[in-house]
Design a protein around this nucleic acid. Structure first.
Ligand code: FES
Ligand code: FES
Lengths: 145, 145
DNA sequence: ATATACTTTACTAAATTTGTCAAGTATTTT
DNA sequence: AAAATACTTGACAAATTTAGTAAAGTATAT
């Protein structure tokens, strides 16, 4: 349960490739595709969305590619995922775009809300810089392996 | 993103109805269906799964219905959801039933693992007793509304 | 000019979700 | 025993979502 779409996953991995690319020089889509083993056509779709969301900018023509719009520490994983897959919406009732009729008497309402906020909080605190550093995972508790 | 299936949601709400039913007396499936506004046929499927998972037991015949197998504080939301929708598996690589080929060099591996553990932790700490009490949500932080 | 490389839209096959339906089994009440 | 209640089981299908592919177009550097 609670699967993350491949689009979101690929998006994060693509952003990682862009952020570790040589600073100032754009990273070509083909390079990202090869390094992360994703088709160029699918990446086009994904990167286009991320560009419209303002997370990256693009340079056309030979030698072109993609660049981060901000520093790695200023781009959170949450922002990337939200751009591609919309906000965390565990249930239709929690979806900011939908909403619920009888949100009052509903016991589970607060439960899903609390979990949703926990997830968003985690994803928003985690940035590309953390991915580059390759640690800091686990939060309060230490991770076993 | 990160939607919870209706099956899981209905399952939790059904379990809530059973736990707040008069102690010792089984709750009929029709009563659950009416109170939670879910079709009887769909609930049959869901409750059957939960029964096979050992979370509830059933009584047949007139006056029959469903009973909790344990005390409300001993049944976690996580257990209910896992019974119906399988374990939290944000990515195919994190799925205990699947597994990944190149889990090593993968930067995002630890990220999804950490998030998955956070979610499971939350769901496993939360029990039917908490739903009955109607509070305790929010964890570290207080919830706004 | 030409090659490189991003841009945009359309479309579709596969998987998953969300149920419905029908027939059966067990138990209690009359 | 008969009837009514109520859980049990398995098959199946519509709707939705996901996960991509394909193709034609636009901009830029050499
Ligand atoms: S049914 Fe909408 S909040 Fe529970
Ligand atoms: S590709 Fe499997 S862990 Fe990242």
């Amino acid at each position: 349960m609670l699967k993350l779409s491949t689009k979101g996953q690929y998006g994060v991995r693509a952003m990682f490739e862009i952020s570790r690319g040589h600073p100032g020089r754009p990273v070509a889509i083909r390079e990202i595709a090869e390094r992360q083993d994703v088709s160029v056509a699918y990446l086009e779709q994904i990167l286009n969305t991320l560009r419209k969301a303002g997370l990256i900018s693009s340079v056309r023509g030979p030698g072109g590619g993609y660049l981060l719009s901000r520093q790695p520490e200023a781009i959170s994983i949450g922002e990337i995922l939200r751009s591609l897959d919309g906000p965390v919406a565990l249930t239709a009732c929690q979806d900011p775009l939908a909403g619920c009729v009888r949100a009052d008497g509903c016991v589970t309402s607060l439960l899903w809300k609390a979990l949703g906020e926990k997830i968003e909080g985690f994803l928003d605190r985690m940035t590309l810089r953390d991915l580059l550093a390759g640690s800091k995972f686990g939060g309060e508790r230490a991770v076993g392996a």
